[in-house]
């Protein structure tokens, strides 16, 4: 219940953070960046992590908020989930993120927990990575060598592992607008508060009763979020009917490697992904 002792700093600029990271690296100290803390602090309380230094990003105002650019939205890494779930720009242009954020943990956690924090934490069962992957977002990192941009497809690298280097921080996520697309995040849990056993993020565009575009992300079907590319390909060009959706979504588990745990084995998760994909697409299609 009580973390090991650590030093604490709360800088107000990204530059200060980078300087601290560099100093810690040369001193050989373990550092943790504290965003919303909703995953980090529990881990520290259980003493599964005991950093020498915690750098709190909570005082860096430039990392908070959503702004509109021409074809994209720029989301600050420290924007809380609650803001993602209630922001009007996101509701209009990125309904998938808007809906997925509303399913993260519980209201208290959504008030504190941040969009960027959840992405960098990269829990395979976390609810933000798969939808972000589906959008093809660009991750903007700040580091000692300046800004670095990483595509979503390269960002998630394994269990709790991302492209962010020890001397870098994630500052913003630039997400293409999907205005007018149908979107849904279908999450499956045993109890409401639980991490996703499996979840499917879907965005579709339908013209004249036919899918013209489709993007699907899978949560907790491997050590990283995955795109359900087989489903996407099968959907595009097919009719927006239950039969064709069911057929396309039966491919959802292709290429997945889900883990087995208390909530279900790998076989069950693979099956579940097909059902949830179908439901996500049906809901996204408004059927």
């Amino acid at each position: 219940m009580i973390p090991s002792a650590f030093d604490y700093a709360a800088p107000s600029t990204v530059e200060e953070v980078l300087a601290m990271l560099a100093a810690a690296e040369s001193a050989g100290d373990e550092v943790k960046l504290l965003a919303g803390g909703q995953s980090l602090l529990p881990v520290m309380k259980l003493r599964m992590a005991d950093p020498a230094l915690v750098i709190d990003l909570g005082k860096i105002s430039e990392l908070v908020g959503v702004s509109e650019q021409e074809d994209t939205l720029l989301i600050g890494a420290m924007t809380p989930h609650h803001e993602i779930a209630t922001n009007a720009l996101l509701a209009k242009h990125l309904p998938l993120l808007h809906k997925a954020a509303a399913t993260v943990a519980d209201p208290q956690v959504r008030h504190r927990g941040t969009f960027g924090g959840a992405l960098v934490h990269a829990d395979p069962a976390g609810d933000m990575p798969a939808p972000v992957l589906a959008t093809g977002a660009t991750f903007i990192l700040a580091g000692p060598r300046g800004e670095r941009r990483v595509e979503a497809s390269d960002f998630f690298q394994g269990y709790f592992t991302t492209a962010v280097a020890d001397d870098e921080i994630l500052t913003h996520i630039q997400v293409p607008k999907f205005t007018g697309w149908g979107a849904h995040y279908e999450k499956f849990t045993r109890v409401a508060q639980q991490w996703s056993i499996v979840a499917v993020a879907a965005m579709v565009k339908i013209e004249d009763g036919t899918f013209t575009r489709a993007r699907l992300g899978l949560t907790n079907m491997a050590s990283t979020p995955l795109r359900a590319t087989a489903v996407e390909q099968a959907l595009v060009g097919s009719n927006a009917t239950l039969e064709s959706i069911t057929a396309a979504c039966s491919l959802a588990a292709e290429g997945t490697e889900p883990a087995s745990d208390l909530n279900g084995d790998s076989t069950y998760r693979k099956h579940l992904s097909t059902v949830l994909a179908k439901r996500a697409v049906l809901a996204a299609a408004g059927l």
Binding site: M1, Y8, A10, L34, G37, Q38, L41, P42, K45, L46, V54, D56, G58, H82, A105, D106, P107, Q108, V109, H111, R112, Q193
Partner: peptide, 26 residues
Amino acid sequence: DTTNCGACTVHLDGVSVKSCTMLAVQ
């Protein structure tokens, strides 16, 4: 000790947070 039960819920600037999952310095 895992941010599940909510017994420690307080308001921070008017919104609910779990006070076991926040440092006093924050």
